[in-house]
């Protein structure tokens, strides 16, 4: 009976993956991808990875989906030309055989996994006490493998630098994305006024409970960033010019604090990112509080995209 609850979402996820692959229209495929991301969340919950489920729905399905949908709307004009480039039947058949072989090989590996499975859960639980954190995943992310989290924050920052560097020279330092003009009395503007206070509280809550329950700074920061994007897209405010000093300071503040505490660990605890005895929880909190706003800002600006308008242009003039 329990198997039904595994098989039904599994079949739906598989069907949605096939749909995003074979759909003729790219826009339809990207919308299918968002549904796919949301259904994957169900799979993550069934695999008892609630923290991963939150990340998947917020970043994997939500932000990535939005990015792809927006790009597909912009690239709609290229669809007709692309259809003519569709490979011949022989190529498609060869690709299908290759894909099936890869899947079959992986499936054999899945069925041959060792039993009992190797696990680090006992080690994590045994060493979690001194960190003062109640959620084992947060303990891994912030204490045992804090380097991963530091590098992850820096990868996000590098992605933003990459996105910005794709701006044409004449708008360098300008405002990202178009200036959105929504009907100020429309439903979008209404939601953009009503939802953010709730969303920001939900985001901060998910960030805060991450210490002891599923949640964390990335998931929380994504929700806060989404609220900012909503306000931007409703035209209630404009994206800041990327040359603004304060903005750049805000972006690097989190990673810089993290690195500073990492180096302090060399002096006080004998290793990079090590926390001295009894200081784990306060230091983890300092890092998380410093990272969360930087992450929200970075995620929001990555979504806003490369600068498209010179800083000097007034919002009205820049409007399409």
């Amino acid at each position: 009976m329990i198997e039904v609850f595994h098989l039904v979402p599994a079949l739906l996820i598989g069907a949605l993956a096939v749909y995003t692959t074979v759909a003729r229209d790219t826009f339809a495929a990207t919308v299918g991808f968002i549904a796919y991301g949301l259904m994957l969340t169900v799979a993550w919950v069934q695999l008892h990875g609630v923290d991963v489920a939150l990340t998947e729905s917020a970043i994997g399905g939500g932000l990535t989906g939005l990015l792809l949908v927006r790009a597909s709307a912009k690239l709609r004009a290229t669809e007709a030309a692309a259809r003519a480039e569709r490979p011949r039947a022989s190529t498609r058949l060869a690709a299908a055989i290759l894909a099936a072989a890869v899947s079959a090989g992986l499936a054999i590996a899945v069925l041959a996994l060792p039993d009992p499975a190797p696990t680090l859960a006992p080690e994590v639980l045994a060493n979690m006490g001194p960190t003062g954190v109640g959620n084992p995943i947060t303990a891994v992310l912030m204490a045992f493998r804090a380097t991963d989290t530091l590098l992850e924050a820096i990868v996000l920052l590098l992605a933003l630098v990459g996105v910005w560097s794709l701006a044409p020279d004449r708008v360098w330092g300008g405002r990202p994305g178009p200036r959105y003009n929504a009907d100020p009395d429309g439903i979008l503007a209404f939601i953009a006024r009503v939802l953010p206070p709730i969303g920001i509280i939900v985001g901060i809550y998910i960030f805060w409970v991450g210490a002891d329950d599923p949640g964390g700074k990335f998931q929380g920061a994504t929700i806060v960033a989404a609220m900012w994007l909503l306000v931007l897209m409703a035209g209630l405010t404009d994206a800041p010019p990327i040359s603004r000093r304060l903005l750049r300071a805000g972006l690097v503040a989190g990673p810089v604090a993290f690195i500073a505490i990492g180096f302090a660990g060399v002096a006080t605890a004998g290793a990079f990112l090590a926390y001295p005895d009894g200081w784990s929880k306060p230091l983890i909190l300092v890092v998380e509080f410093a990272l969360m706003p930087s992450l929200a800002l970075t995620l929001g600006l990555i979504m806003a995209g490369a600068p498209e308008r010179a800083e000097a242009a007034s919002p009205r003039e820049a409007a399409p």
């Binding site: 695999l47 991963v52 990340t55 190797p118 696990t119 994590v124 639980l125 084992p136 493998r145 991963d148």
Partner: peptide, 30 residues
């Protein structure tokens, strides 16, 4: 999930790596 032990629903180390992986995949996609 197969690494579930001692009341945990899954091995927390791969789960933490997955969160990192999803964020990095998003960066690359963007």
């Amino acid at each position: 999930r197969r690494g579930a032990a001692l009341g945990l629903g899954g091995d927390p180390v791969p789960q933490a790596l997955l969160i990192t992986g999803i964020v990095v995949a998003f960066s690359a996609t963007a």
